[in-house]
């Protein structure tokens, strides 16, 4: 492939940037619907898997937006704060909604967004980090973290009330949720970062990490909701296979070997 055709391809690829607003809309609406549907019947618990995947997508896009500026602390710290700050918000949301349980996800999302907003504002104006997207991205990341935790709780236990959160915590599975959630939000950008990082490819990887979480959530849900957990497991495996092969195919298409002339031709033979 010649240099000019590479450039042409890179430009064509660059045009297809998905707007952050669209991803935010998807990341709020789809997980909320998924969480509500999954909580209606344990047979529909696998729909929580869709919520997990889209919440991860939203979070990973937020991490990508802010970490592109090179904040100097490494991408993992951005991903860990997503779940770290969202935990308290989720618990608060569930406690506040103890009478009207259906309000819990919305309240958790609102409190997480507020926590994220505060972290973003203090990072931008008190810690004086010169990153314009800091406030918005931290808000988005924390919101995604709260939806991700709730989606996990719903997928694994079949409900999102206090009782189920307690049983999830007491078995220790909540730690798994915490770590795989944070990892799958931070991993896509951490793995793809570099000069030729492209939003489409990073987001494809985030779909794959989201689906991988659904597999683990499916295994964990076998303990809580029994056989319907197999549906989640199968759905996750299928989604992971499709999305991960999409990512690998894109990587192969976009990975280009170019002979720059620096290495002698002889050594190639």
């Amino acid at each position: 492939m010649t240099v000019s055709s590479c450039n042409a391809k890179a430009e064509a690829v660059e045009e297809k940037k998905i707007s952050n607003n669209l991803i935010m809309a998807l990341g709020i609406v789809v997980p909320l619907i998924g969480i509500y549907l999954a909580s209606t019947n344990s047979l529909f618990a696998f729909l929580g898997g869709i919520a997990i995947i889209f919440a991860t997508l939203w979070g990973a896009n937020g991490v990508r937006t802010v970490a592109k500026y090179g904040i100097g602390t490494g991408v993992p710290s951005v991903g860990m704060v997503a779940l770290g700050a969202a935990v308290a918000a989720v618990v608060v949301g569930i406690y506040f909604a103890s009478k009207t349980v259906l309000l819990a996800p919305v309240l958790a999302l609102i409190f997480a967004l507020l926590t994220g907003l505060l972290i973003g504002l203090s990072a931008r104006y008190i810690l004086k980090m010169n990153i314009p997207v800091m406030v918005r991205s931290m808000t988005e990341i924390c919101g995604a973290g709260s939806l991700l935790i709730l989606a996990h709780v719903t997928t694994i236990t079949g409900s999102f009330d206090l009782l189920h959160l307690k049983s999830l915590s007491e078995t220790g599975i909540v730690l798994l949720v915490f770590i795989i959630g944070a990892l799958s939000i931070l991993h896509p950008y951490n793995a793809c970062l570099g000069a030729d990082e492209r939003q489409g490819r990073t987001l494809k990887l985030s779909l794959a990490t989201g689906s991988a979480q659904v597999i683990l959530a499916g295994i964990a849900s076998l303990y809580f909701i029994g056989l319907p957990g197999m549906l989640t497991l199968l759905f996750g495996a299928l989604a992971w296979f499709v999305t991960y092969s999409m990512f690998v195919r894109t990587s192969f298409e976009e990975g280009i070997v170019m002979n720059t002339g620096l290495i002698p031709e002889v050594e190639h033979k």
Partner: peptide
């Protein structure tokens, strides 16, 4: 009055949120 398991969960999150603020301040 939060159950001990959920307390541990929140404590981890609280610790991480503060550690990240410090990390942003240190910047590297």
């Amino acid at each position: 009055g939060i159950s001990s398991a959920i307390s541990a969960f929140i404590a981890i999150g609280f610790f991480l949120a503060n550690a990240v603020l410090a990390a942003y301040n240190i910047a590297g």
